[in-house]
């Protein structure tokens, strides 16, 4: 069973981060929220594994809370 990868896995992290920011350039808050939602759905479909997505949701939720 595949598991969520939480160790570095992007070969050019700064480029990917810059791509994310660039996609939001010139968008207002509502447009950005909509883009993020579409992106999450596209990525979730690509992952295609409910367990991995559940782990990702947990990891993302946990990281937003005080340690």
């Amino acid at each position: 069973m595949s598991r969520l990868i939480l160790t570095p896995n992007l070969d050019r992290p700064d480029d990917v981060y810059a791509d994310l920011l660039a996609a939001h350039d010139g968008l207002d808050k509502a447009q950005s929220d909509a883009l993020n939602a579409r992106l999450i759905l596209v990525l979730a479909n690509h992952i295609g594994d409910r367990q991995v997505i559940a782990e990702a949701l947990q990891a993302a939720s946990r990281a937003g809370q005080p340690v």
């Binding site: 929220d33 909509a34 939602a37 579409r38 999450i40 759905l41 596209v42």
Partner: peptide, 9 residues
Amino acid sequence: IFRDAVLDL
């Protein structure tokens, strides 16, 4: 937002 994202996609 998610609902509209699904419909747009």
